[in-house]
């Protein structure tokens, strides 16, 4: 099959998931639902972060990335800045990798 046709199918599949909920939820929502939706971003981000830090090829893997992520958490909490978090976390990661 033409690769461009596959790309188009993938693009459509991606677009559907992104767009589907937006018009459905365009009316007023009850408060508990809003409260729930407010918690979604933090839960999703956490679900993206934790496996990325703790797992390598889907196996629990200990290494310098875990303390480096911990440094990132502290810096993120203190500064609320994405750039400082990346900077401090990468510095910690490189230092720890050099030491170990």
């Amino acid at each position: 099959m033409n690769p461009w046709a596959v790309f188009a199918g993938m693009a459509l599949a991606t677009y559907l998931t992104r767009f589907a909920m937006m018009p459905l939820l365009s009316r007023e929502l009850p408060r508990p639902v809003l409260r729930y939706l407010q918690l979604v971003p933090v839960a999703i981000l956490s679900a993206l972060i934790a496996p990325a830090v703790l797992l390598v090829d889907r196996r629990l893997t200990l290494g310098p990335q875990i303390p480096a992520a911990a440094v990132g958490v502290v810096v993120a909490w203190r500064t609320r800045s994405v750039l400082w978090t990346i900077f401090a976390g990468m510095l910690a990661y490189w230092l720890l990798s050099a030491l170990l």
Binding site: L45, G72, V75
Partner: peptide, 17 residues
């Protein structure tokens, strides 16, 4: 170790929530 940038960026973003 550039793959670390992705979780770190998300950690930074998560802090604002």
């Amino acid at each position: 170790g550039l793959e670390m940038v992705f979780p770190l960026a998300f950690i930074g973003l998560a802090a604002s929530f």
